[in-house]
Design a protein around this nucleic acid. Structure first.
Lengths: 198, 198
DNA sequence: GACAGAATTGACTAAATGGTTAAACCATTT
DNA sequence: AAATGGTTTAACCATTTAGTCAATTCTGTC
């Protein structure tokens, strides 16, 4: 593992836990086991180092989902597929969503400058609009379904402290809860969109 | 408006926009139009002032929802009711959810010490468990439905920058999108939980 | 109007923080 | 083994920041 990678790893940990303002170069240096000046030698400024981390974090979170959303699969299966993929990613890195969301909220310009996703995947948009027009799903637009999907997936992670407290679950129980969530989210999402006529 | 209230107002704005670490006492003083030393005179330390704001913010967000969840209403109507109430609150204060969620994540101990909600409202728990046992809704526990509800509601606010960017909406269009969301969330949530047998 | 206590301020301090720099270190080439 | 160029470090600097304090102003009471 090269020094640069060790620093990126340390920066990732510290930024993710504390956010941009809460993180200090000293803390990152210690976490990485190198001298503070080395951070500047390799990455210039705190902001540049942070942007490297934010970029990397973001690209862990959405691009794979977008690829899946752009596949040929029928909408119903696609949604199940994406939920599994998305939740799988998040379970492996539970602090990722809140980090990305918080920091993008405070660096909105970063989105336009650094993120190369320009719009929802065209095939997904097509499918949703078609299905909505044909009444196969309830009236909805792509942004709705994207919001549903993301919201249902990330909430138990971003709001874990409060949700775990209120449900009185132990850590182990909460982990189990998260496992079951995959199925639950699929059921609610697919079942809520593809409603039978009553 | 008393000085103490002016300070609380300024602190609310600054903390909400920048988080605990990103906020400075100087910025709060300027926003409130008072001398920095006055903040310490009235509130002691930055941490204490912050806790006052976090407490107040949190209590804007959940207690009303919990009261509604504890009413006598049948579950189906109750869910619609709570979604309207919750989304109504958030639309009036769109930065509240992300602020509370981020800061609780970094102050988990705050929940046990300062927040007097100890568990989900008993009537809600009862209803969910009954309905789940009787197969009126899909298999789910209260924490699931709470997570669904919160996730569906808050996502378009906490992830607004990215979602608005990807959907290519103007500010006005996004506002309209948020308006329609109330109906959409109700449909997905109620429709997804109360599924007919197929 | 004098007094007392609370409210408010400007000037200050000590610690922390992002960033710089000159020197030391190390591997590779000649 | 000397030279070279990239890497790493300790010491340092300027600025920012939370917090303090003595002095001043304000407000109500006698």
């Amino acid at each position: 593992m090269t020094t640069k990678e060790r620093i990126l790893q340390g920066a990732h940990d510290v930024f993710q836990r504390n956010g941009f303002s809460g993180a200090t170069m000293q803390a990152i240096a210690e976490k990485s086991g190198v001298n503070k000046a080395l951070l500047h030698y390799h990455f210039g400024t705190k902001t540049e180092l942070f942007h490297a981390i934010l970029q990397q974090s973001f690209s862990q979170l959405l691009p794979a989902v977008f690829m899946a959303l752009n596949s040929e699969m029928p909408l119903r299966d696609k949604l199940r597929n994406v939920v599994e993929l998305y939740l799988g990613t998040i379970i492996k890195n539970p602090e990722l969503p809140l980090f990305v969301i918080s920091e993008l909220q405070r660096n909105p310009s970063f989105i336009k400058k650094q993120i190369n996703l320009r719009s929802f995947p065209p095939r997904f948009v097509q499918q949703v609009n078609d299905a909505s027009a044909r009444r196969e799903i309830i009236h909805a637009e792509p942004a709705d379904i994207m919001a549903d999907l993301m919201g249902l997936c990330i909430l138990p992670f971003v709001a874990r402290p409060i949700l775990q407290h209120l449900s009185g679950k132990s850590n182990a129980q909460y982990k189990e809860f998260l496992q079951h969530r995959v199925q639950h989210v699929c059921d609610v999402l697919v079942g809520g969109l593809f409603q039978v006529q009553r």
